[in-house]
Design a protein around this nucleic acid. Structure first.
Lengths: 139, 139
DNA sequence: CTCCTAATGATAATAGTTCTCAATAATGTT
DNA sequence: AACATTATTGAGAACTATTATCATTAGGAG
C-alpha cells in the first residue's frame, strides 16, 4: 500500500512522477488503462512527465506488484491497480467497454492440470468477449 | 476442410500462396506459429511469397474460421489450424514451449455469467503460464 | 550542503503489423 | 483458348506500440 516504503525497500527512489502515476491508477481502480491513457491523465497532475517515464513506471510497478497487466487484445497493454482481489474482464467487442467479473473458475482447472500433467501452473490469463447490456439493447 | 470451396463461396480466389500457407498450418497442427514462422516455413514451398501476403492470408483464414488466433503474450500473435476441438495452451515461462490442454472449464463460467449479468459472452481467451516438465527437472 | 547515482525527458531505434500501389494472375465470359 | 475484369501479390513505405540511448536533473544517504 505504502508506495514510498515499497520503492525504498528495493533501492528505488520516490519521485513526483511515480506518485502521480500511482494516484491516477488508484483513481481508476477497476478500469484498465493503457500507457497512453495513463500518460494523458498523469499530465494533468504532473505537466512535464514524459511518455517513456510512464512506460518505465508501469513496468516498475508491475515488478513491485503494485499494478497488474491486463490483456484485452487491443493492440496496447492495459494496467490496473492491484487490489489483491482476483478477477478477470469481460470486453464488449462492440463498444470496447470493460467490466470485471469475480469468481474465477480457473483455480479448479489449475488443480486438475497439476494432477493430470507434469506442468506446474503459476499464473493464468482469462478474458471474456461478447456484448455489453448497452450494446445489446441498442439494436 | 476444402479450402477452395470455402474461399470461392465468399468470392475469394484460390492461389498457390494460400494453398501453401494452409499446408504449413496443417502440418503444424497443435503448434501455434507466428507470422514470421509461417513465412519462413511457407517459403520452403513457395519461394517467392511475401511477408505481407502471409499476414493477409492469416487474417483471411481467421475470417473464414480456418485458423484460430492464439494469445501467448509473446510480442507477436500466433495462429494454428482450427480443428474444431476446443482447447487452450500452457506456456512455459522458462523455455517458451507450448502445450495444449483440453477440458476447458470456461463453458461453466460463461453459463454463470449469462445468468448473473446481462453481458452476453460469445468467446473467451484462456492461457496458463508456468513451468514445463523439462524445465522443472533442469534445476 | 555535497556527492553519488537513480531517474527523467526527448528522441532515436526497434518490432510487429498494416497500408500503398503497380504488376500479376485467377476466374467468368466469350 | 483468348479476353476482360478485378482480386491478389510482392516490395517497400508507413504506422503503432514499446524499448533503448544519453545528457541532464534531482532524490536521499552521509
Amino acid at each position: 500500500m505504502d508506495l514510498s516504503r515499497r520503492l525504498r525497500s528495493r533501492g528505488h527512489r520516490v519521485t513526483p512522477q511515480r506518485k502521480a502515476v500511482l494516484e491516477v491508477l488508484q483513481e481508476n481502480e477497476g478500469v484498465p488503462l493503457d500507457p497512453e491513457a495513463v500518460f494523458e491523465l498523469t499530465r494533468e497532475r504532473h505537466a512535464g512527465i514524459g511518455l517513456a517515464t510512464v512506460y518505465r513506471t508501469l513496468e516498475l510497478f508491475r515488478d513491485l506488484g503494485v499494478v497488474l497487466r491486463v490483456h484485452l487484445h487491443e493492440g496496447s497493454q492495459h494496467y490496473e491497480i492491484n487490489t489483491g482481489g482476483h478477477h478477470h474482464h469481460m470486453v464488449c467487442v462492440s463498444c470496447g467497454s470493460v467490466d470485471e467479473f469475480d469468481g474465477c473458475v480457473v483455480d479448479d482447472l489449475e488443480e486438475s492440470i497439476r494432477e493430470d500433467s507434469d506442468f506446474v501452473v503459476t499464473s493464468h490469463c482469462l478474458s471474456l468477449f461478447g456484448y455489453c447490456p448497452a450494446c445489446l439493447t441498442a439494436r
